[in-house]
């Protein structure tokens, strides 16, 4: 059985990610996934977005927005798989898959934001 303390750590990540996802992510997906493609709002230019993304504050913001919510996903998805599909015997595999995915995404966002 996993040590009692570790779950507390993952739960903190889950909660922090939940807050970030609740406050910041809807507007991002709304703009880039819905409003711009449908032409409801004018698509910003490449140069504008690049300058924006290069500002230090935006880099920090984007890193937070990409990393924590992934750990939020990892936690919830892990439990949904356990409970919804009753696949307890795959416990470890699911754990590695979820948190591994979150880690890869986090590293990727760090790399992109450093290079941009």
């Amino acid at each position: 059985m996993s040590k009692p303390s570790n779950e507390g750590f993952f739960w903190l990540l889950f909660s922090a990610g939940g807050v970030v996802a609740a406050v910041f992510i809807p507007v991002l997906l709304f703009l880039f996934g819905v409003a711009f493609p449908l032409g409801w709002l004018p698509q910003p230019s490449y140069e504008h977005l690049l300058t924006l993304a290069r500002s230090p504050l935006a880099r920090i913001f984007l890193f937070v927005v990409c990393s924590l919510p992934l750990f939020h996903w990892a936690h919830r998805f892990r439990f949904t798989l356990y409970d919804g599909l009753q696949v307890k015997h795959l416990n470890e595999a699911i754990f590695v898959l979820c948190y591994g995915g979150a880690l890869v995404g986090t590293l990727l966002s760090g790399y992109l934001l450093l290079k941009i």
Binding site: M1, S2, P4, S5, E7, G8, W11
Partner: peptide, 8 residues
């Protein structure tokens, strides 16, 4: 209680 069969 701070274990997977308790609060977690």
């Amino acid at each position: 209680l701070a274990h997977p069969e308790g609060i977690w």
